[in-house]
Nucleic acid binder design. Structure first.
Length: 498
RNA sequence: GUCCCCUUCGUCUAGAGGCCUAGGACACCGGGUUUUCAUCCCGGCAACGGGGGUUCGAAACCCCCAGGGGACGCCA
């Protein structure tokens, strides 16, 4: 039997997401249970959004959770490189095969034409997709355009009729009509492959035997299968996992939930508790045990026993589990060590000391002054926001705008946070000291504390976001209607600011 | 809108046609232990989306409907 190899293929375009960890966990368990290998590949074909920092953060986060891999960009391996941006030569040589066999074609359509086409299809209520315009080009026309250096992409051909039938490990037979499938772009005009192309080429060359991924990919599986067929390669076995959900059942998102693994680390969760919790999303130990390690999970794992209803990520249950781990698995000594390592991270403490030193007369002043750096959500209520100039509604608006603005920052540091607050205060025509008041309350729990801008940069975006959101909720939250108006306001402002 | 996937307590889930009067856990409520609180222990509340079949028998199999979710990018 072929060796089992699975992979996690994150895209370094944002914070390390718990959904990534969830899929990584199941891939790793499946591979290891069968004596196979679990590898990590970075899918950074989006030049605009991919960042080195994000890649670093994702690797760190997965390592923190103990979800290690045997091959990857950091550890190498026989299929190196493991970063798609370093595999361009391979994609270039592979795409030529499809071009030569006629399974792929060059498309010179402009973004404008495509947009117009999409709009028309929407209006006519037919399914949207590429109309095959460039398929009619003669060889001479194509040669001419290439000669003229016209920007273009490469698309794949799709059968006109019939069904694509494939088997999903969990869901059985899935049948999708080819007419539903668009002539997917394989190579973008920047010369880099799209996910669909790079993914298939790499999975083949990296000998991936089982593709375990989120169910959001079901509809594009026909394209992937077709590529395997065009190349004459044997496709992997597919397994589409259910998606983690918000409380309202929508796909887990940072707008509604803390989704960053960094948040759980900074809030003082134990990595083994977080992984354990992810392991009980869609899966249970055969004996019903709820507390188990990854090693125990691997011993008893059965991928086909995954249940398909999208599990709601319930922080309350995670809290219970984490408490259980702290109480039942840590000795007093281990508790001390873990707590100290968490609370006194040198980088963090080094930044905090200068903020409090001038304000301290005795060491006993430190906790009242800096305790909020180590706390979760501050204990605040509506009255905490009483202010002679800033109303509760003003506070909500300031908090929400700040949150949106901070989330759009490429870099979350002192300087950019300060600049953001200044810009927003000016725009809202509020004095900066008044503007910062609700932020002081949201972040430190009090109207007076160490510099709130420094505090936010030390706490990091994950915790800052959670506290600001908590403050908005304490103030009664924002109704859908109000949110719409605020969003419009903010968009107008953001345009001016740019 | 089109297509695809899904559907057991509020939430995570057990359930492979008779062991189901549907089990466990979180949350919630009540009680006990504890100088308080928490922990811990005991108890309670609470679900098979609806309708048709198949079968001696359906939570489980089939069909229809409804609801939820996802996809429809030169994002992944």
């Amino acid at each position: 039997m072929q060796k089992i190899r699975t992979r996690i293929a994150p895209s370094p375009t944002g914070d390390p997401h718990v959904g990534t960890a969830y899929i990584a966990l199941f891939n790793r368990c499946f591979a290891h249970q069968h004596g196979g290998e679990f590898i990590l590949r970075i899918e950074d074909t989006d030049q605009v959004r991919s960042t080195e920092k994000s890649e670093r953060d994702i690797l760190n986060a997965l390592n923190w959770l103990g979800l290690s891999w045997s091959e990857g960009p950091d550890v190498g391996g026989r299929c190196a490189p493991y970063r798609q941006s370093e595999r361009s030569a391979l994609y270039s040589s592979e795409i030529v095969k499809l071009l030569n066999s006629g399974h792929a074609f060059r498309c010179f359509c402009t973004a404008d034409r495509l947009q117009e086409l999409r709009t028309r299809q929407m209006a006519e209520k037919v399914s949207v997709g590429y109309d095959g315009h460039c398929l009619t080009l003669t060889e001479e026309q194509v040669a001419q355009k290439l000669n003229d250096g016209v920007e273009h992409v490469i698309r794949m051909r799709i059968p006109q009729s019939g069904d694509c039938i494939f088997n999903d490990m969990l869901r059985g037979e899935i049948r999708i009509n080819w007419q539903q499938i668009d002539m997917q772009v394989l190579i973008k005009s920047d010369g880099l492959p799209t996910y669909h192309f790079a993914n298939v080429v790499d999975d083949h060359h990296m000998e991936i035997s089982h593709v375990i991924r989120g169910e959001e990919w079901i509809n594009s599986t026909p394209k992937h299968l077709l590529l395997y067929q065009y190349f004459g390669w044997e496709p992997p076995i597919y397994c589409h996992m259910p998606l983690l959900r918000n409380t309202d059942k929508s796909k887990l998102s940072k707008r509604k939930n803390p989704t960053s693994i960094g948040y759980y680390r900074d809030m003082g969760y134990l990595p083994q508790a977080v992984v354990n919790y992810l392991g009980m999303m869609g899966w249970t130990m055969p004996d019903g045990r709820e507390m188990f390690s990854v090693a125990e999970m691997i011993d008893h794992f059965d991928l086909t026993r995954v249940s398909l209803g999208g599990p709601v990520f319930d922080v309350a249950k995670l809290d219970w589990l984490n408490g259980k781990y702290i109480r039942e698995t840590l000795s007093n000594d281990e508790f001390m060590q873990h707590f100290a390592a968490w609370a006194f991270r040198p980088d963090k403490i080094n930044d905090i000391i200068p903020l409090i030193k001038d304000r301290v007369e005795r060491f006993s002043d430190v906790v009242p002054l800096a305790g909020f750096f180590l706390a979760g959500l501050p204990e605040i209520n509506e009255a905490s926001f009483d202010h002679k100039k800033i109303s509760a509604d003003d506070s909500k608006k300031i908090l929400q705008f700040t949150l949106w603005y901070l989330e759009s920052l490429r870099k979350f540091d002192r300087t950019s946070i300060e600049a953001s607050c200044m810009t927003l205060a000016t725009h809202l025509d509020i004095k900066i000291r008044d503007f910062l008041f609700p932020l002081f309350v949201a972040i430190s729990g009090k109207g007076v504390s160490t510099s709130v801008i420094d505090s936010m940069s030390i706490l990091g975006l994950d915790i800052t976001r959670a506290r600001i959101r908590h403050a908005i909720n304490v103030l009664g939250g924002i109704s859908n209607k109000a949110a719409k108006e605020l969003e419009k306001d903010f968009r107008d402002f953001a345009q001016v600011a740019e």
